[in-house]
Each structure stands twice: as C-alpha cells, then as structure tokens.
C-alpha cells in the first residue's frame, strides 16, 4: 500500500506547486507563449525551479534501486528523435496554445467545477483513448473486447 500513498502525496504536492506558481491561470501560460507580444516569464521560473530540484536528485540516485517496489531509477534513456515526437509535440503545442492549459493544471482545475475545464479534461481523456486506439492495435483489441 506504500506506492499508492506515495503517489497520492506526490500528486498533492505537485498540485500545490502548480497553484502557488499560478499555472492554474490560463492567461499566465498564454502570456509565456506570447513571445511576440507582452511576454510573461512566469512559466520559465516554474520549469526552472522544478528542474533545479529534480536534476540533482536524479543525478545522484540514477541507476540505484528505488526505496519501494524494487524498480531501478532510470539512467539516461534512449533518446531517439523520430516523427512521432515532432508531430505529437506539435499537436500538443497547438492545443496548449489555444487553451493555455496542459494536463496537470487541467486536472487541478477540475476542482473549480466549471463546465469549460471539465469539458477540456473530458476531451483530453478522449484524445488519449483515441491515440491508444489508432496507434496501438493491441490496446484497441482490449478496448474492443471490453466494450463488446
């Protein structure tokens, strides 16, 4: 039961970080992407702070065994650059630039119980499922079996 508890607490801290940093405010995100207008660097400070904490922890622990569950903390991953990366990141960039919301803040904003954010997250889940149907024949068979 340790892993779910860790997951919950990490999710909780993650959400508070996003909120304190105002990443729950779509105008802040759009402002960051607005390089050609009135640029707002807030998101850069958020990402910089997060990487500043994460990178040294990863560097010191990489290759070792995690405390719970016996997984090995990943070393450098295979970093191939393929079409899927560019097209996928591009499609995400369009959606992100339109709404100013990415997956983390989207889930946090569900707490507002507002129809626009609920609709956004529902469609985001639909997009995830659509991807697994189109790109992963094995998964689509499972879904087909589940819905049959």
């Amino acid at each position: 039961m340790a892993k779910p508890l860790i997951g919950f607490l990490c999710g909780l801290l993650f959400a508070f970080g996003l909120g304190l940093a105002q990443m729950t405010e779509p105008t802040r995100v759009i402002g960051f992407l607005d390089f050609f207008g009135d640029w707002d660097p807030t998101l850069m400070f958020v990402m910089g702070g997060a990487i500043a904490f994460y990178l040294p922890v990863w560097y010191l622990l990489r290759g070792r065994k995690a405390v719970v569950g016996g997984d090995i903390i990943p070393k450098k991953l295979v970093s191939n650059l393929d079409k899927r990366l560019f097209i996928g990141a591009g499609i995400f960039g369009v959606g992100w630039g339109i709404a100013g919301v990415c997956p983390g803040p989207g889930i946090v904003l569900l707490a507002r119980a507002q129809v626009d954010f609920i609709l956004f997250v529902a469609c985001m889940i639909a997009g995830i499922l659509l991807h697994s149907l189109l790109m992963n024949p094995k998964a689509s068979k499972q879904v087909a079996a589940a819905t049959a």
Binding site: F92, L119, F120, H131
Partner: peptide, 16 residues
Amino acid sequence: MALAGLLVGFGTRMGG
C-alpha cells in the same frame, strides 16, 4: 476548449 483538450490528449501521448 473541447478541440484544445482533444489535441492536448492526443498530442501528448503521440509525443510521449
């Protein structure tokens, strides 16, 4: 908003 959500969900999975 619905279109943006769809693009974010699909794109993030495709791009990993």
